[in-house]
Design a protein around this nucleic acid. Sequence first.
RNA 1: CGGGGCGUGGCGCAGUCCGGUAGCGCACCUGCUUUGGGAGCAGGGGGUCGUAGGUUCAAAUCCUAUCGCCCCGACCA
Length: 489
Amino acid sequence: MPKGVTPRSQDYARWYTDVVRKAQLADYGPVKGTMVIRPYGYAIWELLQQAFDRRFKATGHVNAYFPLLIPMSFFSKEASHVEGFAKEVAIVTHYRLRNSPDGSGVEVDPDAKLEEELVVRPTSETIIWSMYKQWINSYRDLPILINQWANVVRWEMRTRLFLRTSEFLWQEGHTAHATAAEADEETRKMIEVYREVAEDEMALPVIVGRKTEAERFPGALDTWSIEAMMGDRRALQAGTSHNLGQNFAKAFDVTFRTEENEQEFVWASSWGVSTRLVGAMIMAHGDDQGLRIPPRIAPIQVVVVPIYKEEDFSRVMQAASALAAELEQLGIRVKLDDRDNMSPGFKFNDWEMKGVPVRVELGPRDLDADTATLARRDTDGKTTVALDSVAPAMPALLDEIQASLFQQALDFRAEHTHTPDDYDTFKELIKEGGFIRCGWDGDPATESAIKAETKATIRSIPIDENPTGLRCIYSGQPAKHEVIFARAY
RNA sequence: CGGGGCGUGGCGCAGUCCGGUAGCGCACCUGCUUUGGGAGCAGGGGGUCGUAGGUUCAAAUCCUAUCGCCCCGACCA
């Protein structure tokens, strides 16, 4: 096995795959497009889950679970929803296997065909709204603020570990409201939660904004997203929140009695983030040494590597485990690397690949001087510090690394965000990747012409847009919106 | 679905053109020496060469079919 990873500059896609596998985040599953999330990768997901779940609860949401299998007929109820997902659903048609006649194995039992075929959920709007119909009668039943953590299946043609797999893990919030204003408020509130987790926990700067009609969720009135820039300057949609209006209520005939005893359709929102975020973290922060995980979502925040010759073994190990215990007391996720079959040099590279924010090296020379050697993953080089200061200073150091990774990502994004005045410049700039912030006349035809010519799409109509005085980069007409163009994942 | 590539010990590959006893590196196991940036030496175990047919005295190698995976494009969180 080659020692490092393919350099990013040489082949970014291969760098990504190398890092995922060498850092032991995930492996390919036996079925095309499937992924095994290994313990280290899953630990990151769990920390993300906690960060989100805490905030969902704090904003009044509760968790529930709806079934994986959905009657196929449900999918015919919301026209644009069908159109959006029909091409990529897995369908269950039978419920039994039998031994094949030639004795070579098993086969589908043709006698066990289902009356109504079942769809493996690609998303749960339909099954959830079929239930909401039963649960909602009056304005007193509203709002319903339910989230579920689940897996979904979308039969993708092209897959990539974490970014797009046939099956992935996510959360999907599905809310029901009495008024349009409430549904809109909910949609905005949750995209703000996503922004906060992305920026504060993942150190991932994102652009909050709305999607154009072309990029909107099938069945939504309005889609909000957070968009991030990856290390190859491409855009990644990291989370979405949809104002579904009354579309699903109408499709599933979900009405309620208002205070005025009027019959009205329910207003809805849905919002989700997925294991794709792990991919976002890898591509936003990783370097040619491997992962760089922001401390708040790092399964291991500090690794202690003891260095010893035989005669130093016991005093080094003693000091190392004392230090690890002291760090743990402070609530820091610490790992003492006591593997004795690997050299220190191997361990340094190994933990760098795995993106651990801080490494503490402790050897005889350090102990003689009452010092420890510190290596930060976000910067190069090592420093020597007093041993008894390591633990007390660690929480602040982790905060500093968190902030530094955010700043690095922010600087990178700023460096690769441009505001050209004419379309020729636009075309030149987009070849290099990055974001282009410019005017758009609001015409879908303009959007699709630009896509056809440059592969760039409108990623976002930023929440802080200011189209006043701007002209459309393509048509030269007065701009209706200020938008972000980019090539995207 | 179009284009390309690849299926050979756990992983990465050579061998295929030109048929003739299946090899290399890493990993693994044992022992000794090592340990401050991917340790060294010695010994050892492990593969019906994706699958199914065919040609041949003989097939990883030639022929036919088939399955799978990866990469690039059209669609998507």
